[in-house]
Amino acid sequence: MKCYLTGCVAGFVAFSEDLKVIDYETFPLDDVASRLSESQMGGITPEERRILERLLGEYDEVVVEAEPSPAYSEFGKIRFEMPSAAGVHLRENLDEILESITDIPPSRFIHSALISATREKLRESLRESDRFLIQAINALDELDEEIGKLIERLREWYSLHFPELDGVRSHEQYVELVARYGDRDRILENFRMDVEESIGSDISSEDLHIFMDLAESIRRLQRLRQDTERYIDLKMEKLAPNLRALAGANVGARLIAHAGGLRELAMLPSSTVQVLGAEKALFRHLKSNARPPKHGVIFQHPSIRSSPWWIRGRVARLLAGKIVIAVRKDVFSGEFDPEIIESFNERFEFIKNKNKKPPVKRKRFQRKR
């Protein structure tokens, strides 16, 4: 004597040879999506295990509507059939059968499955480390913008009191001097400068206080920027070691942010990776036949930025191709491969040595009439 076992959105239903319902196990409403996912991946859910154990104790043979899977190896009298007669019968009469075995309508199970699946995808998205990395690199760009604006404001403002201090080119040193000493006389006492007498105006204690507060706020932002940069480097080392070693932590993180995630970046062709971040120039090229961009974010890489103009396009193509290999290695194997960097450096040196001089532009001669 044999019976049939088939699954549906609500759980598992067992049928006799004449397709009468003999047993069933329903999924918990708050976990329908994960149960369906586990079943579709070839696993055995707790509900299927319980009903199988009962059926195998009563019937000589159980016909399961599923693909053969190692998960069923612990059970003996099982035969696989895809599709089975019971499965076809269940799908054709789903509403009627479910109403007979449970007081919950099928639409409720479907709604619960969709809600549960959406929640699981949201949790998975929030668990992905590249989302933290994207937020960090965006924060770093915003910090750079704000620090730049505030330093420019401090220099213009403080130059009313001590214009000669503009000779200090380093922004960090300028901010440090104003935050620590404030008054120009104290700066001249503690910092060697070739200034005999300043032409700046005198200031009150209120002016001095606001100068020092502004400079100290900029110092805190600069320290926060350094901490954020270290955080990005640590995240890149764990998440994408090959990309970090090849492109650098900041360039790699910006590529991930532009692509929308590490896995999304791994799916892109090298031609797209090459111009990520140069979307405006690319659209301008497509719209008005302007010259196409040779590089986007990857221009910040030393190999491109320090190269002469006539080989930047070739180096950008080379780097983009190696970046794609590095990212796919990070996503699909997670193993660090030093050969990627070695092959890039070898090819980069070859391009530099072969193209030491700019190409000669050929003159176009017009035929004399």
Results as ranks from 00 to 15, higher is better:
Val9Ile: 12
Glu164Pro: 12
Arg244Gln: 12
Cys3Thr: 12
Val32Leu: 10
Ser303Val: 04
Glu53Asp: 07
Val32Met: 08
Ile115Lys: 15
Arg254Leu: 09
Leu126Gln: 14
Val195Lys: 04
Gly11Glu: 05
Thr102Ala: 12
Phe332Met: 11
Asp207His: 15
Asp183Met: 02
Ile110Lys: 13
Ser307Val: 01
Pro68Asp: 08
Lys238Pro: 02
Ala10Glu: 09
Met82Asn: 07
Asp207Arg: 15
Asp18Phe: 02
Leu140Phe: 11
Arg291Cys: 02
Glu47Phe: 03
Phe80Met: 11
Phe332Tyr: 15
Arg223Ser: 10
Ala245Thr: 08
Tyr158Gly: 12
Glu67Ala: 07
Phe336Gly: 00
Lys294Glu: 09
Leu29Pro: 01
Glu349Phe: 03
Asn93Phe: 04
Arg367Glu: 08
Ile232Asn: 14
Gly248Met: 06
Ser39Arg: 15
Gly76Pro: 07
Lys356Asp: 07
Ala290Thr: 13
Phe75Trp: 10
Arg317Gln: 14
Thr6Cys: 06
Lys357Asp: 14
Pro358Glu: 14
Pro293Glu: 05
Thr6Glu: 02
Arg328Ile: 00
Val178Gln: 02
Phe299Gly: 05
Arg347Ala: 14
Leu165Cys: 04
Trp309Gln: 15
Glu81Trp: 05
Asn289Thr: 00
Leu52Phe: 04
His301Gly: 00
Phe283Cys: 06
Leu150Thr: 11
Gln226Arg: 11
Ser100Leu: 06
Gly200Glu: 07
Leu98Met: 10
Gly296Cys: 02
Leu56Lys: 05
Lys235Ser: 10
Glu197Thr: 04
Leu265Ile: 00
Glu216Thr: 12
Ala316Val: 06
Ser198Trp: 04
Ser16Pro: 01
Leu276Gly: 00
His301Cys: 01
Arg180Trp: 02
Cys8Met: 14
Ala266Lys: 03
Glu156Asp: 12
Ala266Pro: 05
Ile78Gly: 15
Glu216Asp: 11
Ser271Met: 01
Met1Asp: 13
Ser170Phe: 03
Glu264Phe: 03
Ile325Thr: 09
Asn345Ala: 07
Ala247Glu: 06
Ala247Ile: 05
His209Phe: 11
Ala33Phe: 14
Gln40Leu: 13
Arg263Ser: 05
Arg244Asn: 12
His209Thr: 03
Glu197Gln: 08
Trp310Pro: 09
Arg127Lys: 14
Val9Leu: 09
